[in-house]
Design a protein around this nucleic acid. Sequence first.
DNA 1: CTCAGCTCCTGCGGGC
DNA 2: TGCCCGCAGGAGCTGA
Length: 284
Amino acid sequence: MPELPEVETVRAGLAPVLEGARLSRVEARRPDLRFPFPPDFIQALTGARIETLQRRAKYLLARLDRGRTLVMHLGMSGRFEIGGGRTPGAFHHAVATEAPHAHVVFETEAGDRVTYFDPRRFGYMDLIPTEALETHRWFADLGPEPLSDAFDANRLAQAFAGRKQGPKTLLLDQRIVAGLGNIYVCEALNRARISPFRAAGSIGKGRLERLVPEIKAVLTEAIAAGGSTLRDFAQADGALGYFQHRFRAYDREAEPCANPGCRGVILRKVQAGRSTFYCPVCQR
DNA sequence: CTCAGCTCCTGCGGGC
DNA sequence: TGCCCGCAGGAGCTGA
């Protein structure tokens, strides 16, 4: 599911319920997601108060009042729902059925319930000492937030210098810029009319100065739209993001390029194991 | 160091 | 209808 705009949408949806809330009950319905839960996961969370719910790159960070932070990554198919955890209509059965793939349930003293679903289980959660977050291996090497001033053309030029890989691959590298994924990289390169395949080191500074604002623009627009709903992404309140209707390249194979004045057609090619959607006419 | 390829896991849609 | 294949929003690992 989630790239930066989707994770930010989830954060914004959960914050009203979780920020300032004290957890009265936490349930892990299996021993692991991508990784095992820490041994004291339930014990450490039960009774803890969530001070803030923040986002860094594609991670959600729930800072607890106990010196640790609950770190959550949604992988490919992770999703939160306010409520949930039981199959709707389960009361029709003699025994309530657990909703499929509802792996973690958080209940607050205020009576709210937040359920984490993740069919593919590429997501993960851990408890990390808050003061050690920045040096933790998940965060130590992360690049700048793409929407921050720290992410600019100079930074990108430095990262691209001498590299033969395409800008597509490098923009997916979270050490260069943190939060982009396959959709928004395809979209930003199409908007900036830069080929995903050319050697990143050969892209002139002027073109990077066009690319950076396009990255920021597509992310900002996607956040405003509540993210993109491809298969199963929904906001925490169940509302669907609608940015997918504004895709110009991603998932638009054989459709006309939307760039003004371009008469090209979007192609799909596999690059580094991922689908790359691009316009061979205007993206150079 | 760089880079391509493979891996984890489940579900879904298209083609036959 | 049912089966098989390819593909999916991430990212870490391997080995050349």
